[in-house]
C-alpha cells in the first residue's frame, strides 16, 4: 500500500506519525493499536518469553534441553531474574498504559459466564455490543497484571531466599509455580486466538491496523464508533 493511495481524512497524519493514534480509519483499515501500545505489548511478550524459556528448564528437568538456547542452565539462572525484573517493569508500564481502557462496563460480567465463553469459542456468540476490547480480553489484561505481581513478589523471595523466613520461601515457590502455570495456560490461548484462530488480529499488533471487516466481525461496537456510526 502506498501513501499516495490514502484518502481518508487524517490518514496522512496517522501514517506519517507511524500510526500513532488509535481508533482512526486509514484507507480501508482502522488503526487499532498505536505504536506505543504495540511496543509495550511486545516488551511484555518478549520479556515473558525470555522468562519462560529461561524458567522452564529451571522449573523442571523436562525442559532442561531448552537451557541450550541460552547457553546453559547457569546462564538461564542468571538471566531469569533480570528478565523477570524487565517483565515486571514492562507489565507496570502496560498497566498504566491500558488500565483505563480495561475497566469492565456494566453488563460485561455476564459475558464471562461459562456459557457465553463457550459460545464465544464456538464462534456462535452475539457480539453486537462488543467494544474495542471484549471482556475476555479485559480479563486477560487483569490476569496478566496480577500474574506479574505474583511472579515478581515470589520471584524476589526466590532470588534472595536467605533473606526470608522458611515459610515465605516455601509459599513463594508454590506461588511462583502456580501463577506461572495459570498464566502460561492463559497466554497459550491468548496467542492462539490472536494468531491462528482469528486471522488479522496479529496484524493489529504488528502494523497496528485491522481491516474494517475484521473490526466489524470482532468488535462491532468499536467499529461503529470508529466509523462514526454510533456515538
Amino acid at each position: 500500500m502506498s501513501v499516495a493511495s490514502l484518502d481518508t481524512h487524517g490518514a496522512d497524519v496517522a501514517v506519517t506519525a507511524g500510526r500513532d493514534r488509535e481508533d482512526i480509519v486509514v484507507g480501508g483499515e482502522i488503526v487499532r493499536h498505536r505504536r506505543s501500545s504495540r511496543f509495550i505489548h511486545f516488551a511484555v511478550a518478549a520479556t515473558f518469553i525470555v522468562c519462560l524459556l529461561t524458567g522452564l528448564p529451571i522449573w523442571t528437568p523436562f525442559f532442561t534441553w531448552m537451557a541450550t538456547l541460552f547457553g546453559g542452565l547457569s546462564f538461564c539462572r542468571w538471566l531469569h531474574p533480570w528478565a523477570g525484573i524487565f517483565f515486571a517493569v514492562s507489565s507496570l508500564v502496560m498497566f498504566v498504559h491500558w488500565a483505563g481502557q480495561m475497566t469492565f462496563e456494566p453488563g460485561e460480567k455476564s459475558w464471562l459466564s461459562p456459557k457465553r465463553l463457550m459460545s464465544y469459542l464456538e464462534y456462535r456468540d452475539d457480539n453486537t455490543d462488543v467494544g474495542k476490547y471484549n471482556p475476555g480480553q479485559k480479563l486477560q489484561f487483569w490476569c496478566a497484571i496480577l500474574a506479574a505481581v505474583g511472579l515478581l513478589a515470589s520471584g524476589v523471595v526466590m532470588w534472595f531466599p536467605a533473606s526470608f523466613p522458611q515459610i515465605v520461601r516455601e509459599l513463594s515457590i508454590l506461588l511462583h509455580s502456580l501463577t506461572f502455570i495459570l498464566f502460561v495456560m492463559l497466554i497459550t490461548w491468548h496467542v492462539y486466538l490472536g494468531t491462528a484462530a482469528e486471522p488479522g488480529t496479529f496484524h493489529s499488533m504488528t502494523r497496528g491496523t485491522v481491516t474494517k471487516a475484521w473490526a466489524r466481525l470482532h468488535h462491532p461496537k468499536w467499529y461503529r464508533q470508529v466509523m462514526g456510526l454510533e456515538k
Binding site: 490461548w189 491462528a196 484462530a197 482469528e198 466489524r216
Partner: peptide
Amino acid sequence: GTVGHYFTYGKKEY
C-alpha cells in the same frame, strides 16, 4: 486444547 479448537472450529474470519 488450542489444536483441538482449531481442528473443530477453524478460523474465525470475515
